[in-house]
């Protein structure tokens, strides 16, 4: 009973001094943060900042070098299977079997998560409707467009009702219409179910609109973390999230400008 109460008040994700080294290069360098249940948490940062590495560690796909992390109350090193049960993930690059149909991809996923046939059929039908792919469900995925693949992957990430959903650049390379559509699903999801969302994106307006809190990481370290409103307010009344992002991560560009001034 006590543990049950404890569970519901526990953060969905805790990360303590997480470090990941590839040879001697620290891709993630001692970051710490916590994500509350039902929160939508954004990880922003330039390419190579360590966002995807962090997500891969939290999703049990990469071992960590130092520190610790829990997802849904489970340790990502010692309780991999429980973590895997609790999470859904949409990877940065498509991770579909293109020689299977959309429905077969969803079936495969549902069976890997041990979902029985009846529940499987019900959920797949409902999710296909949600992402508007019911009519294309029996077409081979190799004939899908980029946006259709993305929508299918989001549907797939939800079949097993994860408590935590990772979205690694869910709208990368999609047109504005599809991006809007996908953000609408995500927003509805976050409102209507208890799922905690942790996402990365390069589109600042999207992060601004949808994230409750944002962490900006650069060179494997968290440089700032707060609500989008607070981050912008700290910079001035007219500041956009893009300004905040450039302020914290724009060093390289500024250095070049300074050098040009000297010349």
């Amino acid at each position: 009973m006590i543990s049950a109460i404890f569970m519901t008040t526990m953060p969905a994700i805790t990360v303590n001094n997480l470090t990941k080294k590839f040879n001697n290069f620290a891709a993630v360098d001692g970051i710490s943060f916590a994500v509350e249940e039902r929160e939508c948490f954004g990880l922003l940062g330039p390419n190579g900042a360590g966002k995807t590495t962090t997500i891969n560690i939290l999703a049990t796909l990469l071992p960590l070098t130092a520190g610790s992390a829990t997802v849904a109350g489970f340790d990502v090193c010692k309780q991999k299977n429980q973590v895997r049960q609790s999470i859904g993930i949409v990877f940065q690059e498509p991770a579909l079997d293109s020689r299977l149909t959309g429905r077969e991809n969803l079936e495969f996923h549902a069976m890997m998560y041990g979902i029985d046939r009846l529940t499987r059929q019900k959920r797949i039908k409902a999710l296909l409707e949600l992402v508007e792919l019911s009519e294309k469900a029996d077409v081979l995925v190799r004939n899908y467009s980029g946006g259709m693949k993305r929508r299918l992957e989001i549907a797939r990430g939800l079949i097993h009702r994860p408590r935590v959903l990772f979205l690694d650049e869910p709208t990368l390379g999609l047109d504005s219409q599809t991006r809007r559509l996908i953000w609408n699903y995500i927003k509805r999801l976050n409102k209507e179910s208890d799922v905690t969302i942790i996402l990365t994106t390069h589109y600042m307006e999207e992060a601004d609109d949808f994230c409750d809190r944002i962490a900006i990481i650069d060179h494997g370290k968290i440089v700032t973390m707060d609500t989008p409103a607070n981050l912008k307010a700290a910079l001035g009344p007219q500041a956009s999230l893009e300004d905040v992002f450039i302020k914290y991560t724009g060093n390289t560009i500024r250095n070049i400008e300074e050098r040009e001034k000297i010349w």
Binding site: I89, A95, D97
Partner: peptide, 13 residues
């Protein structure tokens, strides 16, 4: 093709 990640992230031994 990235599908191995989908397999490996599933709660299966």
């Amino acid at each position: 093709f990235g599908f191995l990640k989908e397999i490996m992230v599933a709660p299966v031994s």
